[in-house]
Simulated scan of single mutants.
Amino acid sequence: MREHAQPSHLPVMFAQALDGLRVVGNGRYLDGTFGRGGHARGLLDRLGPDGRLLVMDKDPEAIAMARSLADEDARVAVYRGSFADLAGWDETLPGLDGVFFDLGVSSPQLDVAERGFSFSKDGPLDMRMDPDSGESAANWLARATDTEIADVLWTYGEEKLSRKIARTIVARRDDTPILRTAQLAELIASVVGRGDSKIHPATRSFQAIRIHINRELEDLERGLDAALARLKPGGRLAVISFHSLEDRIVKRFIAAAAKAPPGNRRMPVAQDFTPSLRDLGGAQRAESSETTVNPRARSAVLRVAEKIGAEAAA
């Protein structure tokens, strides 16, 4: 069995995620967010020669790295696309012993100014995880109404000044198209003000636009349904979230599959409920030893659930 070198800086909640998946040597596992392969390589190291690792990602750079890994290791299969479509991949048809999602934007994506994710590095205002499909953030901001922009900033970023920011974007774009990340960040800062907060005033708005452009929450909901459909009884689902909107979706999904809804006084006859998941411990946080060296881990939440077979649910 090949030993795969881990990156010098381990991915967020590396050991906790792998322990949660409870990897069996001959199992079939899917990493729906390959990124730069940190968690995937950890999975491979725990798999035996008969194991199988399926990896997915929208990002062409991530897929290039995944294909290099697959060239080295025949146990790896690669699919470019959203994990929302995992059930449509033939490799998942035999069933999965584990599914892993590490949500949000990856550090390498933030570090490359040309990808347009970061307000701290000037670059084209793109924000697409898959730059070959969909609409860029610049194109969307050029055509959306102020109401549409405000709704996105509020819904996905909980930005209190969403309407004022949206009106300012619409007022300025006719004179000067908003094509660069620095332009947008400065515009938002001029509306919100910098104040004493350590958080950049554009943080919430950039997050909201990125989530909208990539349909992240819609993909998450579809991906969770697909994961449950493809998991074998006893298979594990592990999801790392980085903000409350994502975590709320994961938490509610697991709860809805794990326990019956509360009773309704207007419906005296109890409705049949068969659980399909077992919640394994609720929200887990990164250890202090990790958050000290990796500040990004401070907002990470890991949730793990196990699929229940028909006999166990009965």
Rank of each mutant, 00 (worst) to 15 (best):
T292K: 15
R180Q: 12
L93K: 14
G25I: 10
H39Q: 08
K232L: 15
S136L: 06
A150W: 00
A260F: 08
M129V: 07
E148S: 13
R303E: 12
V12E: 08
R143C: 06
A314K: 14
A70D: 01
L141A: 13
V105W: 05
A77C: 14
E216S: 06
A5S: 06
S288L: 04
A310C: 10
G88N: 11
Q207M: 14
R36Y: 10
A270K: 14
E61H: 13
V55I: 01
A64D: 10
A182K: 02
V250T: 12
V192T: 07
I308F: 03
M129Q: 06
L237W: 08
A313N: 09
L53G: 04
A185Y: 09
V269D: 13
A142C: 12
A283N: 11
I211N: 01
V99H: 04
A64W: 03
A270S: 12
I188M: 04
A62D: 02
K307S: 06
A297Y: 05
L18A: 10
K121H: 05
G42N: 09
V112T: 12
D196Q: 11
V269P: 00
V192P: 03
H212D: 00
G37V: 04
A238L: 07
P11I: 06
F14R: 02
L141S: 06
I149R: 07
F206D: 00
S120W: 03
G116W: 02
P60C: 15
T168W: 02
L30F: 01
D102Q: 08
T155S: 07
G282Y: 12
S197L: 01
L179Q: 15
D126R: 02
G134L: 09
G95P: 09
L93P: 00
S133W: 05
K251D: 03
D126S: 08
G281Y: 10
A258T: 02
D151P: 06
I149T: 04
G281H: 15
D19G: 12
F119V: 09
V152F: 03
V23A: 13
G263E: 10
D122F: 14
A5M: 11
L187I: 13
D59F: 13
P11S: 02
R236G: 01
R252D: 12
L18M: 12
V304L: 08
F83R: 06
D111H: 10
G27I: 03
I240V: 11
H212E: 12
L10E: 04
L47G: 11
G234M: 03
A15W: 01
V293I: 13
D19R: 10
D126G: 15
E216G: 15
V55F: 03
D97W: 07
A142N: 13
R266S: 15
I211Q: 07
V55Q: 11
G81I: 09
D146L: 07
S133N: 11
A66P: 01
A182L: 06
A257Q: 15
F119E: 07
R266F: 15
L54D: 09
T33E: 08
V55Y: 06
K259T: 13
G134P: 09
L245W: 01
W140F: 15
A255V: 05
R115A: 08
L245C: 03
F83I: 03
R278H: 06
L184Q: 07
R204Y: 01
V239D: 00
I165P: 07
L43Q: 08
D146T: 12
V23K: 09
R210E: 01
W89N: 04
M56D: 05
E290A: 00
V76D: 01
R128C: 00
F14W: 10
R143M: 10
V12F: 02
D175Y: 03
